[in-house]
Amino acid sequence: MDIIVCLFLFAGLFFFTGGSVGILRFPDFYSRLHPAGKLATLGSFSAIAALALFNLHQFSLAALLTSVKILLLVVFVFLTSPTATHAIVDAGVRAGLTPWTKGEKRR
């Protein structure tokens, strides 16, 4: 049980690491959204699922309710993360930022 929890938690932390490094390394605003939008979503999913699983160690009604609440958080993240990404990219497009193309300088 503990091994599964640790596995999921470390997978989530690994995805979070990828997201953070990607935000630094990618060349422009549009491509930075790819790691920020996707890796953060899956990182939250696996880390939060691990914590919900761990919370069910001492099984009771209250623990079950808390776990379902934590899973509700996952659903919420899955609904809002693409929407927030889309809102940010929309602001960028309306501001007239042009996408980075191959061979240009890093912005």
Partner: peptide
């Protein structure tokens, strides 16, 4: 936004 998604966890 990225900081916020880490803060939840």
């Amino acid at each position: 936004n990225a900081i916020g998604s880490k803060t939840v966890v």
